[in-house]
Design a protein around this nucleic acid. Structure first.
Length: 255
DNA sequence: ATGGCGGCAATTTGCCGA
């Protein structure tokens, strides 16, 4: 089976692409979505269910919004971080096929001197506490989503353009490292990967054509799941679509 | 140094993403 994550940058625009992608990837048991940008009352629940899937979601209009689409039943859903009240809908946690999935849209931060940056750092700390709690309850756990963190310089097309700034700052990378210290593993780095592998490219300046991207979408696995992981790949095909999301799916294969 | 693209919401323009 496979589990996947995709920041779709508006599910209203991208729903046909999501359903096409799921049909083209029948081994994907669960797909976490970020930036659905839809209020719950207008979420296309019926369309997704009539296509043969289970779905859970937590949305808001214009910004944020997360969902899990699955081929098996979804249970024990938690919306957001229980100990961190937040009007922004950024996390959905649920169990699918015996695996605890945390789908997350981590705050962007905007810039180190922005008021949004301390929000990001506080949010990352709150997520760490939630991870500790959930890992203790669920040995088979995966944290999938748009992290808005490029963990290493090799995850950046040109580090000189980003050095020290938002998405690559020491503070953010330290928090990512703290999550790894909990025992979580970056599934992508369990395997040999092509150089300059990225999951996001700016819409502007022909960034995708130039492969001027960042790897900021990740699947972290608990030790028990990492032991089952046989592959992790970034699927760049949807980035070639008409009206693509600026992000593209990341997929982990589990034995 | 700035904006560049795209989605969205409120009205021709601004905010935000990363």
């Amino acid at each position: 089976m496979k589990i996947a994550t995709w920041n779709v940058n508006s599910l209203k625009v991208r729903l046909p692409q999501v359903l096409d992608w799921l049909n083209a990837n029948p081994d994907v048991t669960a797909l976490c979505l970020q930036e659905t940008k839809m209020d719950d009352p207008v979420f296309p629940k019926e369309e997704i269910e009539s296509a043969g899937f289970f779905v859970e979601f937590a949305g808001q209009k214009t910004y944020n919004g997360v969902a899990i689409i699955a081929r098996e039943a979804i249970s024990d859903v938690i919306i957001n971080l229980p100990e961190y009240p937040d009007a922004q809908k950024r996390v959905i946690t649920a169990t699918v096929a015996g695996i605890r999935l945390i789908g997350a849209y981590i705050p962007n931060g905007q810039a180190l001197d922005s008021e949004k940056f301390p929000y990001k750092m506080a949010w990352l700390a709150a997520m760490k506490a939630f991870l500790i709690e959930q890992m203790a309850l669920h040995p088979k756990l995966a944290l999938l989503g748009d992290y808005n963190i490029a963990p290493e310089d090799r995850d950046v097309h040109d580090i000189t353009k980003w050095q020290g700034g938002n998405l690559v700052s020491p503070q953010e990378r330290d928090m990512f490292a703290q999550w790894l210290q909990l025992g979580l593993v970056d599934s992508f780095r369990l395997f040999d990967q092509p150089e300059k592998s990225f999951s996001w490219w700016d819409y502007r300046g022909f960034s995708f054509k130039k492969n001027a991207g960042l790897r900021i979408d990740h699947i972290l696995l608990s030790p028990a799941l990492a032991a089952q992981c046989t592959a992790c790949e970034i699927d760049i095909e949807p980035r070639k679509n008409e009206r693509p999301s600026d992000h593209t799916p990341v997929i982990a294969t589990l034995s």
